[in-house]
Design a protein around this nucleic acid. Structure first.
Lengths: 225, 225
DNA sequence: TCCTTTTCTCGTCAGTACGACGATAACCGG
DNA sequence: CCGGTTATCGTCGTACTGACGAGAAAAGGA
């Protein structure tokens, strides 16, 4: 049987929340094509490597391991004939959600790697589209899953969790209603017993992620879309 | 730059509702590997073809066109190194939802093509997993989108729409509550003015799909998962 | 010490949506 | 005309929601 040959890559949409902004990990390309332009991190799938394994490997290379609290899932595949001038390249995009790490180390092959607010830069290839799809997936998943905790360190306050929602959705949320919903949704968060201190205001109780995989009732954003 | 070469295929999870059962379009393989076994329809992506175009082409070849009311979306990609004995093959799975068509014509290269209730047969390759992912996607999408209308002909009754939900979810729904929710959700369905007749019981009003792309409020199944 | 500011946490209240189910409407075949 | 069947409308108690008031617990300054 005769069939066309392809190269297969994985590209990563790595998201985190820094302060009140949703940020994505970008690299400046160190080789052709699109040399010097900003793009999503990624690379070719090796000869004997599973797709998910390739994604985990690239994530480790770019960020120095997806520490505890991270999340990685397949996003979608993109294979338009003209998307890469080198030939037929199909890319399988993965979505990673991470807590705010110190700062990404410069990857092996990428000249620079930086957190950038989503939408700030135009990207090479079709990476703008891939990024948009990843952001939309993240926004949607926050409604129906406890995945917002993937953006938080192992112990966090309800206010920190709320700031994740506000950054990802780009809208403000009433702290009192959010506190009620987050603490009453079964399995979303569980209290550690400890509290924060040091800053102004009443100390906040600390929580860990719960055991639920689905949020019931969900936490819905205003617009619906 | 040196990189491994892959073959890329598209596989289709084509679902429909026949009577009270959710059915999937299966083909009996006419060539090696897995000759004679049942599998999802699919084929290689051509040299100058987009992924979505390949999926539409395969769908047209197997079913004779996705008529009005159909829906096609990318599902996920599967690329385990050992999933195809012929070598590295990455498949991009697509999910299609169609109204109950007469009967699929035997495809060009597939020996037979048949509607089979979901879960009735074991499939070749990793197609059991792909089918399970597609069914779960369909079940989930029925909650938050008006996609159930994709299983219906252009004009349908509320009862027919309810039978779609019951078949896909495998649970019974109260006809009175469903009628209220389906007719009050903005943009889900719009009345044509006509009615059915002929059978026993009170004639049912006919509806067309509405313009909404998202269902608000959603129509939730019991279990949540 | 006392007061103000800040932030977290708990309550209240009306509006909305839900599931369970009763009641009525409109057709069929006898 | 009458029972069987299916579609459609209405009712009721419960649960969840958003808007917002109020108290609790810290830091910091006078």
């Amino acid at each position: 049987m005769n069939y066309p040959v392809f190269a297969v890559t994985v590209d990563l949409v790595v998201l985190t929340v820094r302060g009140d902004e949703l940020c994505v990990l970008l690299v400046r390309r160190g080789c052709e094509p699109h040399l010097g332009e900003w793009a999503l991190p990624g690379g070719f799938v090796l000869a004997d490597e599973d797709l998910a394994a390739a994604a985990r490997r690239e994530l480790a290379e770019e960020t120095g391991l997806a520490g505890p609290g991270g999340h990685l899932e397949q996003l979608a595949s993109y294979g338009a004939p003209e998307r890469d001038p080198r030939g037929r390249v199909v890319t399988v995009a993965y979505l990673a959600l991470l807590p705010d790490l110190p700062v990404p180390k410069a990857g092996t092959d990428a000249a620079e790697a930086e957190w950038r607010p989503v939408g700030e830069r135009r990207l090479a290839f079709d990476h703008d589209r891939i990024l948009a799809d990843g952001v939309e997936r993240a926004r949607s998943k926050l409604e129906y899953t406890p995945l917002a905790t993937a953006f938080c360190p192992p112990e966090f306050t309800i206010a920190a969790l709320r700031q994740v929602y506000e950054a990802v959705w780009g809208e403000t949320i009433d702290p009192r209603n959010f506190h009620r919903k987050a603490t009453t949704a079964p399995g979303f968060v569980s209290p550690t017993g400890d509290s924060t201190g040091g800053g102004p205001g009443r100390p906040a109780k600390l929580f860990r992620r719960g055991s639920a995989t689905l949020l019931n009732p969900p936490i819905l954003r205003r617009g619906g879309v």
